[in-house]
Write a protein that binds this DNA or RNA. Structure first.
Lengths: 197, 197
DNA sequence: GAATTCCTTTGACAATTATCAAAAAAACAC
DNA sequence: GTGTTTTTTTGATAATTGTCAAAGGAATTC
């Protein structure tokens, strides 16, 4: 269900969030708004499917998303996107290739779409938009780096404890299996870790 | 040994490389050049030390660098930067915090420094520079993502084989220990993997 | 509320990798 | 070359995690 140009208040709030990431003039907000769209999702809906090319950066206005993919027939969680956070398939978005990742709504959600085409056009001529993208990418890079270090150098137990500390609510939102694959371990191993704590 | 504004030809070539990443007018090149510096390093020299804040993006004009850190007293390789590639400490650079990472020259090297201060100034007022940074960050993000997936979902043997395929020359440039920690395994495990192949 | 389905835990065992120690090989210095 | 140091390999053992199978719980449906 696409509802373009309808929920103006939602867009206004979103543009304010963008503005807090990197300052935007009213004019920049106006041109950016042209490239926004809005979608509501029911629990279980897919925002991006395997094989589709990722043509947007997604902002979770409400709800909760899971980004996952299939590896040897098993579904592996790559990331969770909480309310007021962004997500997208990095590789598909930049390389314009079919996505291996699937983005699933695990609660009823509201998502704002930022179109790649729009952003690519705007960043070429609008300095504020270009700087907004720089802020966005540098934060994404730091997050990616952090996750990499966690996977490479912490034990499964430590990673689980960190997750509990940083996102305690996650336990009630997603299955143990999803948390386990997100941590890079099997469901059984996570179950045993929990038994120890 | 810093040699600013001396090796003009080297800078010209470097600016051409930047231009090939994202187009730069002669004027943009001119202003960018003001924020470049140059340094030669002997084998074993440190480009960035633990506790120092990373104030530059480095470009390996010649030679070979290793980025590593200490974890429980052991030195762990995070990345290798080959000739004509960039490197920097992501966290230290963006957060302006002391670096955990150490960047070491493992061959006699020539490195071009792109100053963070200069880039931060320029990107605010120069659209071409802002777009250059966007290209740079998006490629960094893709690389970080790729490495993360490799660590999380491939066996040590597979990772070693991929490394051999992608950078066969690396075997002759760095010790087995450094390759092992880069792959996220111990030296002994890597030695045993090699014996199998 | 009984049946079905899905999620989580537990058990037994195998595979992978780490750790500690020592030997072998290679590189380096004199 | 000889001796010294560093790097790599090998051995024995332990720890961690994965795999396969089954049981126990919880949630859902009819």
């Amino acid at each position: 269900m696409y509802l373009n140009h309808i929920n103006n208040l939602v867009f206004k709030e979103f543009l304010d969030i963008l503005n807090s990431i990197s300052p935007l003039s009213p004019e920049s907000k106006r041109v950016l708004q042209k490239h926004l769209s809005f979608r509501t999702l029911s629990k279980g809906d897919y925002l991006l499917n395997h094989g589709e090319t990722c043509r947007h950066i997604y902002f979770v206005n409400k709800g909760f998303l899971r980004i996952f993919y299939y590896k040897n027939g098993k579904n592996i969680t790559e990331w969770f996107a909480r309310e007021k956070n962004f997500c997208f398939s990095i590789t598909s978005y930049f390389n314009k290739t079919p996505s291996d990742l699937i983005i699933e709504s695990i609660e009823d959600s509201e998502v704002i779409f930022l179109s790649r085409k729009g952003l690519e056009e705007l960043r070429k001529c609008n300095l504020e938009v270009a700087n907004l993208i720089i802020e966005f990418l540098s934060h994404s890079l730091i997050a990616s780096q952090k996750r990499m270090e966690s996977i490479q150098f912490e034990t499964a137990k430590k990673r689980y404890q960190n997750l509990l500390k940083e996102q305690p609510e996650i336990i009630h939102q997603v299955s143990l299996h999803n948390i386990a694959t997100f941590l890079g371990i099997t469901q059984e191993t996570l179950s045993r870790i929990r038994a120890q704590i």
